[in-house]
C-alpha cells in the first residue's frame, strides 16, 4: 500500500525567492528517510512540496515533478486537496484540535472523507490509536479533550490522526523537537513499527536521531545565505554516518560546520 516517491528537479519559491533548487531523490516504499541539514537549508520546505502544503502560503509555488509511484502530484488536473488526503503529516509542535475530544481528533480526517458510520469510525479510531501506541493510555477517556494530554502523548495523538486515513506516505517535520527524551525514544520506536505499513520521510535537525531511526539519510545545505538550499548527498544511513562521499556532509555531521 505504501508508495515510492520520486522527486525530479524540484524547485520551491516564496514569491521570487528560490528556497530550494534542483532537488532530485528517490524514496523507496516502507523505508524511513531522514532529511538533515543546518537551519534554513530548505529541508522542511522540500518536505512540504511532497504533500503540496508549500503552495498554501500566499505567493509560494513549486516547479518540478514529485511522483507518487507513477503519478505526478503536480501534474495538470491534480487536486492539491486530494493529494493531501493521501499523504499524512505530523508537525513540529503537537497540534491536536483543542476544542475536540481525543476520539474526534483521530476521526477528523475520516469524517472529512465523508465516513459517518459510527461503527466504522470506532474501529478506525481504535486501530489508529493502537498503531500510534496510544490506545492503552487513552482508551478510558476518548471523550476528553485532546489538549489534556502530555506533549509526547499529544504528538502520538497527531500521529494517530494522520494514520487514521491510511495514507500512502507519512511526512514528519521535526516531530520530536518539542518533546522530552523519553517521549522522543517512544516515537522513534513507533517509527520502526510504522515503516512496515507506510513510507516515512522525516525532517530532523537532530543528527543522532537520523542516525538511529532512518534507513536512508539525505543531507541538505546551502552555499551562503540567500542561496537556495540543495540536496548535497543522499545514501544509506550507514554510509552517511561512517563514510560519506561529500566533504560537506562529513563537515556537517562531525560538527565542523553549521
Amino acid at each position: 500500500m505504501s508508495k515510492r516517491i520520486v522527486a525530479e528537479d524540484v524547485n520551491a519559491f516564496y514569491g521570487s525567492f528560490r528556497a530550494i533548487a534542483g532537488v532530485s531523490l528517490t524514496i523507496e516504499p516502507n523505508t524511513v528517510t531522514a532529511l538533515i541539514g543546518p537551519s534554513g537549508c530548505g529541508k522542511s520546505t522540500f518536505l512540504r512540496t511532497i504533500n503540496r502544503l508549500h503552495e498554501v502560503i500566499p505567493g509560494a509555488r513549486v516547479e518540478g515533478k514529485v511522483m507518487l509511484d507513477s503519478e505526478d502530484l503536480y501534474g495538470a488536473g491534480v487536486d492539491a486537496v486530494a493529494v493531501r488526503r493521501t499523504i499524512g503529516m505530523v508537525f513540529q509542535r503537537p497540534n491536536p484540535f483543542p476544542t475536540m475530544s481525543i476520539y474526534d481528533n483521530v476521526a477528523a480526517g475520516l469524517r472529512l472523507n465523508g465516513i459517518k458510520n459510527s461503527k466504522v469510525l470506532d474501529e478506525a479510531v481504535e486501530r489508529s490509536l493502537r498503531g500510534a501506541n496510544l490506545w492503552n493510555e487513552v482508551k478510558e477517556r476518548l471523550a476528553k479533550p485532546g489538549a489534556g494530554l502530555s506533549g509526547g502523548q499529544q504528538q502520538r495523538l497527531c500521529i494517530a490522526r494522520a494514520i487514521a486515513v491510511e495514507p500512502q506516505v507519512l511526512l514528519m517535520d521535526e516531530p520530536c523537537s518539542a518533546l522530552d527524551p523519553i517521549s522522543t525514544l517512544a516515537i522513534e520506536d513507533l517509527m520502526t513499527d510504522l515503516k512496515q505499513r507506510y513510507t516515512i520521510v522525516i525532517v530532523t535537525h537532530n543528527m543522532q536521531q537520523a542516525a538511529r531511526v532512518s534507513d536512508r539519510t539525505g543531507f541538505f545545505s546551502l552555499e551562503a545565505t540567500g542561496e537556495p538550499g540543495r540536496l548535497i548527498e543522499i545514501d544509506t544511513t550507514e554510509k552517511i554516518f561512517s563514510n560519506p562521499s561529500e566533504k560537506r556532509t562529513e563537515d556537517y555531521i562531525t560538527g565542523r560546520f553549521g
Binding site: 504533500n51 502544503l53 498554501v56 486537496v81 486530494a82 493529494v83 493531501r84 488526503r85 493521501t86 499524512g88 503529516m89 508537525f91 509542535r93 497540534n95 491536536p96 484540535f97 483543542p98 477528523a108 480526517g109 472529512l112 472523507n113 497527531c158 490522526r161 494522520a162 486515513v165
Partner: peptide, 11 residues
C-alpha cells in the same frame, strides 16, 4: 498550526 493540521488532513 491548527490551520495547517486541518489542511494537511486534506481539508
Amino acid at each position: 498550526a491548527n490551520r495547517e493540521a486541518a489542511l494537511a488532513l486534506g481539508a
